[in-house]
Nucleic acid binder design. Sequence first.
DNA 1: CACTAAACGGACCGTGCGGTCATGTTGCTG
DNA 2: CAGCAACATGACCGCACGGTCCGTTTAGTG
Lengths: 205, 205
Amino acid sequence: MRADAVRNRRLLLDAAAAELAEHGTEVSIARIAARAGIGKGTVFRHFATKEQLLLAIFSDQLDGLSATGEALLQRPVPADALLEFMAAAVELQLADRSLCQAVTAAMRREPVVRAAGDRLVAVAEALTARARQAGEVRDDVTGADIVLLINAVMQGTAPVSDTVPGLWRRYLSMIFDGLRPEAARPLPVPAPQSLAPALAPGRAL
Amino acid sequence: MRADAVRNRRLLLDAAAAELAEHGTEVSIARIAARAGIGKGTVFRHFATKEQLLLAIFSDQLDGLSATGEALLQRPVPADALLEFMAAAVELQLADRSLCQAVTAAMRREPVVRAAGDRLVAVAEALTARARQAGEVRDDVTGADIVLLINAVMQGTAPVSDTVPGLWRRYLSMIFDGLRPEAARPLPVPAPQSLAPALAPGRAL
DNA sequence: CACTAAACGGACCGTGCGGTCATGTTGCTG
DNA sequence: CAGCAACATGACCGCACGGTCCGTTTAGTG
């Protein structure tokens, strides 16, 4: 690969991530290319289609979340680590409009994103297992539950995140109260095995 | 208003609601018009813009949810009524892809939808107040909380609703466990006064 | 330095959208 | 029944998008 090619690829990925964070997946390729300072044709040289570009960025971002969770495994109090993981994930997603879709995309059939999604679930499960064994959360909650609940808090409060910025903390707090052992009542439905393959083919992005 | 005009308006609204339920707000006006069996120009005679058509349908749907909640006020056990209200709302929204956006739209500045959103919050507050006074839910939860939590459950599980249809019941159950008095811990953020005006102007639909 | 293959760029294409308008049609009223 | 205003219609417009293509530039090489 030629030197200018790798340089442009970097510029492209950075610009795309920034533009996606600001405007979501609706941004046009033209806009991303302009921000990167490269031509539109060059974008399609690196990624055959818009979707491939998005999926590449999505899996990167999911791995970022996984890394955050992994670091929190060192925390002494398991429940604190788990709560902080959820808080960090929600906060990151609210700041980055493409991360929301990234989590959804994690449930798709595309191997790259699916793998990143599985890694994220694994980290969540590690954090959850610790808290479960310490008796700090109910014993019927799994890593997949945590990821879906993160998504729920984020998606549910996204519409008001601009005008009531911290509101998500209220609902994360409420929901976490429902995860404690003393709150547990039998659940009507078992946990999902994994997140993928869960998303129907023609859905979302 | 002429007789054929009111007839076509009905056809249009019905077709739009059905098409929106199936395909979400991305459906083209042409498609809606085709389903209604009328011309595309006729659509714009009744609603100057696509957004106005959508907002009209949204507020109708929000009022439908309000009616459901109102009926549940008769139930003997307040907490059961509240839980059933949340379940009904989530189930309806998952079946109707435009209802999801309707709730979001309820947080907008448009007077019609905002009014419908306020009515929905009022009904939710009535249901919540009953349960609160009966000591069946924690006393720091409000009607606006309920609406946002409904939205959270729905949005969070929407991506998997096709392949794991009943999964939302699991998370509604968990979250409701967090609403009970015995689970209550102090919340870090106060409840929002209302839902509107909460959504930034250029956001969503 | 000369040469070539890789990479670049932006004009270009087809498509589908929301919205408009001139023309034709139809329900109402006197 | 006559006449008119309200209404219906679909061809049409401008636009923005994702994606293609080919003439041009440039990085590496012997």
